[in-house]
Amino acid sequence: MTLLSVQDLKLEYDGRTILDGVSFDLAQGELKVIMGPSGSGKSTLLRCLNRLTMPNGGRVVFEGRDVLGPDVDERALRQRIGFVFQNFALYRHLTALQNVTLALRHLRRMPAAEADERALRQLARMDMQAHAHKYPAQLSGGQKQRVAIARALAMDPAVLFFDEPTSALDPLMSREVVNILHQLRDERVSMLCVTHDLYLARAAGGRVMFLDQGRIHAEGEVDELFGPNADPRIRAFFHQELQQAQAAQPISPAQPISPAQPMDGAQPVDPSGPAGSPER
């Protein structure tokens, strides 16, 4: 059964084409990976699906309802979609537990005890119950990732979106992310994962789409895409990524956010700005 259907999605920004007619479906319980180089429009694509960015054209149908229509209850829609951000985006003033309970308390209006209990269950699912009362600054990258996933899962979303889940992690941690994806897939959680990490795309074990310059150039099982008959664009991308990995550092480079890339249409937030440090 189709959970999410994207048809001919288009986005232009500042005279640049970011998304140039993207179409795909995500079935209930499916894990799909969208792979592509930096600036290919992957992250923006995810943001168009929960209206953090409004596309210029196309259709998005989620749980049988049109997402882009004028009368859509944006906040209700977003509560159905768990979003795990690239840099985790944990609320720094809240403990791991409070990060997870925030939405339960203030969106579900759940009593504190019930929210805590439910959040602790999600943290346990991510093997993080021992760290429930730590603040984000006291957690490692991989631990933050787990809290971010628990936070998204707590609302029982219909689907989980992952935006570059390994880009802020070292290779060892990346392997853990794959384990988590497998665990969730076995629990039949629907997932859409955007990445430029070849290892992740390959190991995740779902169907893979290759996105470049706002278009999907190939879609298939891992073996087809990574096989000898792969699209030349994919090969060029592999080549480039491998070179970068060899030239640079053991850590996979974080994808730089291009300033021209619109990530948020509606609110006066500048996600391309530097992560603010306290002014002291």
């Binding site: 953090l52 509560q79 951000f85 944990l90 939405a103 969106l107 937030v269 996600p271 603010g276």
Partner: peptide, 15 residues
């Protein structure tokens, strides 16, 4: 000084 990505995450959450 509040991290913009946290605000974005809160929006994505539906707050």
């Amino acid at each position: 000084s509040v991290d913009a990505s946290e605000v974005l995450a809160a929006e994505a959450m539906g707050l």
